[in-house]
Design a protein around this nucleic acid. Sequence first.
DNA 1: CCCTCACTTTGCAACGTTGCATGCAACGTG
DNA 2: CACGTTGCATGCAACGTTGCAAAGTGAGGG
Lengths: 340, 340
Amino acid sequence: MTASLRQVAERAGVSIRTVSNVVSGFAQVAPETRARVQQAIDELQYRPNAAARHLRGGRSGLVALAIPEIASPYFGELAGLLVREAERRSWMLLVQQTDGDADHERRLLDGVRGQVIDGLVLSPWALSPGELRRGPGGVPVVLLGEQDADGLLDHVAVDSVAASREITQHLIAAGRTRIAAVGLQPHLENGTAARRLEGYRRALAEAGLPADPALEIPVDRLHRADGAAAMSRLLDAGPRADAVFCFSDQLALGAMQVALARGLRIPRDLAVAGFDDVEDGRYATPSLTTISPDKEAIAREALNCLADRLGTRPPDRPARRVVAAHHLVIRDSTGSGDGQ
Amino acid sequence: MTASLRQVAERAGVSIRTVSNVVSGFAQVAPETRARVQQAIDELQYRPNAAARHLRGGRSGLVALAIPEIASPYFGELAGLLVREAERRSWMLLVQQTDGDADHERRLLDGVRGQVIDGLVLSPWALSPGELRRGPGGVPVVLLGEQDADGLLDHVAVDSVAASREITQHLIAAGRTRIAAVGLQPHLENGTAARRLEGYRRALAEAGLPADPALEIPVDRLHRADGAAAMSRLLDAGPRADAVFCFSDQLALGAMQVALARGLRIPRDLAVAGFDDVEDGRYATPSLTTISPDKEAIAREALNCLADRLGTRPPDRPARRVVAAHHLVIRDSTGSGDGQ
DNA sequence: CCCTCACTTTGCAACGTTGCATGCAACGTG
DNA sequence: CACGTTGCATGCAACGTTGCAAAGTGAGGG
């Protein structure tokens, strides 16, 4: 089994406490003693026991990431960055999936907290702000996305309204006049969809374009299949759209497949834009115009928030709202040419 | 803070031990007592302390997944299934990224083991079989992929040789004669690429087709960019291929983009096949023919192996080699038509 | 009425670690 | 030479839990 402080102490002929001092680097230990202890440590391959440390000191070194679905490209990319960023701080990342289910999110918020992890990064999907309060015995929580929990929890997100407005403006500038929006989530208290819709509508209004409800398409989830279904519905309905702004790249890619399959030329007949800038979109044919959120910044800032709260206990600073940068990436799917 | 057994015990007017009995469901507790204790538990919102349990009993309930890159679609999908499967067994999944780096893999194998986690699911990329031994104080390890560690560790994978042979045979049956292979990794002791190459060559040989070294393209990683680069090289070189078998869907998608950009029609001018069956390929245009590994089975069996080893200590059964099912999925990218 | 037995409850110890306080020696200073 | 100081090493206790063994209770049989 694994060696403990005691065994190392016996081997080095010193007390447990001294070994602990050597291991922690703390306190003053005579160089000679230190060397002897170090040798025993190496020989026995001693590693500190995380459980004991956790029990004693209260920190587990674990941070949980709770997202709807790790297999979804956007969350996959984000998770990768978070793992890397966590490692930089010698934390480890626990991944939990909520499947966009409210119960599941609630359970995670209640259950995992306070038991194993030092902090939670949660990307809520179905939970309303009111439910996102900090519970009793809770660990620090950072929210990703647009759900702001009434300003009670730290929160990192891009400015979805501004970003959606920008990308819609881009479509308008390219001469499109009948621009559809795909990705509404009317049945959920989901802030993300609501804000992207708001930015879209604002851009239309500013350009003096009418807002046509027939061009606002709701979806169940943000998968490709949903985008495909939405595009089918859009094409089956009467009035032709000449552009589509999808609230995620996945939706856009699904929509694009259907449009291409029906013989539409992208972007000539139909411009398509997404949101997230996942790798799929960069390599799709035609490549996908999108909003690129600064995912590195999101990952960094999220863990920054946790680190802050873990550092200073009593001050209990007010919840922070971090806005991550984004930028519009124009690719072939909205180009003025024929997209090759 | 969080309530402990002691506080619950005081409130319910019983001993700590009795509360423990109630919580564990063990032992026989008088219904009346049980009810009283349960009420105290509810009132105080008691949750067992994971660190203490871990320290006492040796189980943390944590399993680590170490993969090259979580953002890669194949590993993302696999991670999602593993998270779900772990949850089914009330384990939690810790995700670590190796970046395909040998040092990193080695460190994970040494460091994380025995400290926090009960088991490790490792998808080795750069580590040679010889290095994959079970170290001292190690926890159970399951390998994913083709690296078999000299039969010392449990191991779950599809039969890559057979699968590659099948998909190559499919290309041959479709009338292709100059079939390229993209994805060799000559500089790594990477079993996966070697086996896929073997299956490919075997199919060619069986069909009496010559093996042309100019059609075997090495890559650095398995990203889309590598597939794109490989396709460029292939097209720039003299002899035209009429089909490409890429060792991953990502490679295939990158390759496809380049081919389309250069005006090739897929599948008419060039058939493209991949490996992994990730969602991207299903929604690409044209949709991608591929080998679909039974990822659910891989996730299930991997955790089965760990569960087994955690269950029975002394027996120390020999390493198990689980072969997961796969099947060929024929889509438009190798169809005989023009892919719509 | 005592003894045995089943049922229920409890005390003790230990998992490996670290904060706190203290012991012990050698040192420099008055 | 006595004293305070410094440098180093150690013992005790506690974090919250559970395995083990034993103690307390009441009922039923001899």
